[in-house]
């Protein structure tokens, strides 16, 4: 347990590593070619934002990174995606294990209809991360603290998770995702169902999370991308148009499509 944090502190010192490498990724939904030739390198301990108009494939690509697209029958993925140099579409890779490493937070907060405690303990339980109850309690507390929701729920851990407010639910889901100690955290428009105050809280949390994780966030709000991310990728019609430092994308985009999106001419 403590190894992990030590490791992370060590990593922080060094230069930013490449966490995820994607090369020539193609995704088909049936006959629909949804992602075309996307190659991208995602850094560790960085927030990377995927932006683009709706239907541009940014969510689809995100779901390739933890193989959530496997659950859709008609979806087919080609190309190469590697995490820490290891091909995640290799036949020997078990998506179950992959997803323990690559956590995901969804657009709509989706707490299980269980207690707050059980929601967070869910991942550690199925992966057998805790040897006993007190260890599990520790994991839950740490995760809830990282999810910046501990103070709000510590007195009612046995209350149903569905009874929280929208912003609290989303932070609970983030806590749930970090409880399994993932290395990558995927966030699919995590704030689109939240009000501005809750959005602010979640954005703050994302900023903190990048200390420990490589965070990939899909958002349709450019302000949000500018606020929370260090790197930004712009998707358009299934193509990765431009990928660079966030500041550069927003101030000096290379591609005319990026520019028109940012200035509001396509969207």
């Amino acid at each position: 347990m403590y190894d992990a944090d030590q490791n992370r502190t060590e990593r922080k010192v060094g230069q930013k590593d490449i966490k995820i490498t994607a090369r020539d990724v193609q995704v088909y939904y049936g006959t629909n070619h949804a992602i075309k030739d996307v190659s991208v390198e995602i850094e560790d301990k960085t927030v990377t934002a995927f932006i683009g108009p709706s239907g541009c494939g940014k969510s689809t690509f995100l779901r390739c990174l933890n193989r959530m697209n496997d659950t859709i029958d008609i979806c087919r993925v080609e190309g190469n995606i590697a995490i820490d140099g290891e091909d995640i579409y290799d036949r020997r890779v078990d998506p179950v294990q992959l997803r323990a490493k690559v956590g995901m937070v969804f657009q709509k907060p989706n707490p299980f209809p269980k207690s707050i405690y059980d929601n967070v303990a869910y991942g550690p339980k199925i992966h057998g991360l805790a040897k006993n109850k007190s260890e599990l309690d520790d994991i839950v507390e740490r995760a809830l603290r990282r999810g910046a929701i501990w103070d709000e729920v510590k007195d009612r851990l046995q209350a149903p998770g569905t009874g929280l407010s929208g912003g609290q639910q989303q932070r609970l889901c983030i806590a749930r995702a970090v409880a399994t100690e993932p290395e990558v955290l995927l966030m699919d428009e995590p704030c689109s169902a939240l009000d501005p105050i809750a959005t602010g809280q979640v954005e703050e949390l994302i900023d903190e999370l990048k200390q420990n994780y490589s965070v990939v966030i899909v958002t349709h709000s450019m302000q949000q991308a500018a606020r929370v991310s260090q790197k930004t990728a712009f998707f358009h019609l299934g193509n990765l148009v431009e990928y660079d430092d966030t500041e550069k994308i927003f101030t000096n985009p290379q591609d005319s499509r990026t520019e028109s999106y940012i200035t509001g001419r396509i969207g």
């Binding site: 995490i83 995640i88 020997r92 078990d94 323990a100 992966h127 399994t180």
Partner: peptide, 30 residues
């Protein structure tokens, strides 16, 4: 960082490389 494929120093106990199926995982699949 390539410790994903080696079991030592993983992020948490029981977490090994994504392609090496450990005992617990096999039990879960069974």
């Amino acid at each position: 960082m390539t410790d994903l494929t080696t079991s030592s120093g993983g992020a948490a106990s029981g977490q090994t490389g994504i392609s090496s199926a450990d005992l617990g995982l096999r039990r879960r699949h069974r």
